[in-house]
């Protein structure tokens, strides 16, 4: 989809004319609902995020706990855990990703339809966590797939997962459908699939995906241009 060159300066969000939020609120109280398509679309999407039923390790138990009666992720419209990636909007990477598992994780990510989001739940998914020194442990799932929300903890409490979900909802509500800062899934040039790594002779090949992650600059070289 090619976007036409913007003739005027892009409208600030929400782009519902020149009516202020206070006026809209006043109208809403009197039974008139003013909205934009973008807002309506994002409101609907953010309140029906279907996560992929995909437990990796310890954090998966807390993910299940978040779905049960006490924490009740259904309050946020995200209780429908789909076993099939084709029906899922959100991948919660809940646990340690090993080098044997990352090809499957990337493949599942590729199979999910756009728009799709990823939450890295727990220390292991963020950076390798306590198992970072292990020879078989991937040092963060963001080396291969783009992560939207990071939830620290080992494992994070279910409340932390709910907070991460609310942050993701906030992020979705702020996405634009058109314009120069349009959301990733509306742009044809943004990749939605990545190459699946393979198990090489010594390590996974490639060791990271340059499109989403670059190694940090070694500390010694900082400040030398």
């Amino acid at each position: 989809m090619s976007t036409p060159a913007p003739t005027a300066a892009p409208q600030p969000f929400p782009a519902a004319g020149n009516i202020s939020d206070a006026d809209r609120e006043n109208l809403r109280r009197n039974g008139v609902l003013l909205t934009s398509l973008e807002e309506l679309y994002n409101w609907g999407r953010s309140n029906s995020i279907w996560p992929l039923q995909f437990g990796l390790a310890c954090c998966a138990i807390e993910m299940i706990a978040a779905a049960t009666a006490r924490f009740d992720i259904a309050r946020f419209g995200a209780e429908i855990f789909r076993p099939s990636p084709r029906q899922a909007d959100l991948m919660i990477v809940s646990g340690t990703v090993t080098k044997k598992m990352i090809p499957q994780v990337v493949r599942l990510w590729n199979q999910m339809p756009e728009p799709k989001y990823c939450i890295a739940m727990g220390a292991c998914a963020i950076s390798g966590g306590p198992f970072k020194q292990g020879y078989n442990v991937l040092k963060g799932v963001d080396r291969f797939i783009p992560v939207d929300i990071y939830i620290p903890g080992c494992p994070p409490r279910p409340e932390a997962l709910l907070n991460g979900l609310m942050q993701l909802q906030k992020k979705i509500r702020g996405e634009h459908l058109t314009g120069p800062d349009a959301a990733k899934h509306t742009r044809a040039d943004a990749p939605s699939e990545y190459a699946v790594p393979t198990c090489g002779a010594h390590d996974i090949e490639p060791t990271h995906n340059p499109a989403v992650w670059t190694p940090p600059v070694p500390l010694g070289r900082l400040g030398k241009g």
């Binding site: 390790a57 646990g95 090993t98 598992m101 198992f131 020194q133 292990g134 020879y135 078989n136 442990v137």
Partner: peptide, 13 residues
């Protein structure tokens, strides 16, 4: 082996 986290090797170190 999809969750082999090197528990034994880490413990030896």
């Amino acid at each position: 082996g999809y969750l082999h986290r090197n528990h034994e090797k880490i413990a030896e170190n």
